[in-house]
Design a protein around this nucleic acid. Structure first.
Lengths: 159, 159
DNA sequence: TAATTTTCTGAATTATATTCATTTTTTTAT
DNA sequence: ATAAAAAAATGAATATAATTCAGAAAATTA
């Protein structure tokens, strides 16, 4: 199941990624000091990491309590067949309130993560989705009461 | 279920957050131009957003294909009672390979997201966890074959 | 409505990003 | 092995941006 990738990242690239994942606003000067290199060399590498698509985005993690809604739900769906399943998943992914869609092996076909303002609007969203989406046999919803660990960053290998 | 928060963010704060979530490395000068304000005013606000804990971190999204392992699994566990359930969840959250732990309402007690290098090491991890963790009645694992939507950013309200 | 606090502005200063010619290192081909 | 070519690094010069701060404007409080 392990697939090799086309990205060849050397020790310095990984060190840069590690520092920038921790703090996207770190200066080239600081990275250069940490890695004992010239700032211009760091800049060059960072530009290449961006161009090669290794760096996808510089983003700001915002406290959800400050801006986001409170209610979170996972929904798993079951479809009649795998082709219909994939289509349905794509439809689900288009819905704005749907944050994640995972096609999974096993009993169910997908796992869907939805964020809505309250239970009522979650139900409305689901009802609304069903009118658009075919091949759904059953639905099991569950509400997240508490999250102990989330949004963990990717683990960047040592070398 | 909706709870009010202590953060009072005005229109300008939200506009800044929206820009910085999209690009954490945007300059104060650029934000200032966009919002027709002085760069120093933007800087002052950003510092306050950091201090107040609204801005949690500036991070770099890295292409998982470049650095991360391929196999991903969801595990849902069932515990004997709700107290044991919470304790077990905390134990699970301590495991390095475990990326997310959600305490959920319904049939199961938690939903756990794990990233390991292959099925064998996932099984080893699970076996290892069980020796430490009590109150587990049953386990259902499922492997994510494809992810259509993930890592969506928080939706920042208009005003 | 006066006093206080908060936020904003704009100029000065400090620091960083960016560019580029040159040097060093690595890779490729023979 | 080794010469040629390519890639990466350096360090100085320049362009941009961050930061500081005194004073003005706006918002809040008593």
């Amino acid at each position: 199941m392990i697939v090799e990738n086309n990205f060849s990242l050397d020790k310095v690239d990984l060190a840069i990624l590690r520092l920038m994942q921790e703090n996207a606003r770190i200066s080239n000067v600081q990275i250069a000091k940490d890695l004992e290199m010239a700032p211009s060399a760091i800049l060059e590498r960072v530009k290449k990491l961006e161009q090669r698509g290794v760096i996808v985005q510089y983003t700001t993690r915002i406290n959800p309590a400050a801006v986001d809604l409170k209610l979170l739900a996972f929904i798993s769906l079951k479809a009649s067949d795998s082709i219909g399943c994939a289509d349905t998943a794509k439809e689900l992914a288009k819905i704005e309130e749907v944050q994640e869609v995972h096609i999974i092996a096993g009993e169910d076909c997908y796992l869907v993560k939805v964020r809505t303002s309250d239970s009522a609007s979650l139900m409305a969203l689901m009802r609304n989705s069903f009118s658009k989406i075919k091949n759904i046999l059953s639905i099991r919803t569950t509400i997240v009461l508490e999250t102990l660990k989330e949004q963990q960053q990717l683990k960047i290998p040592e070398n």
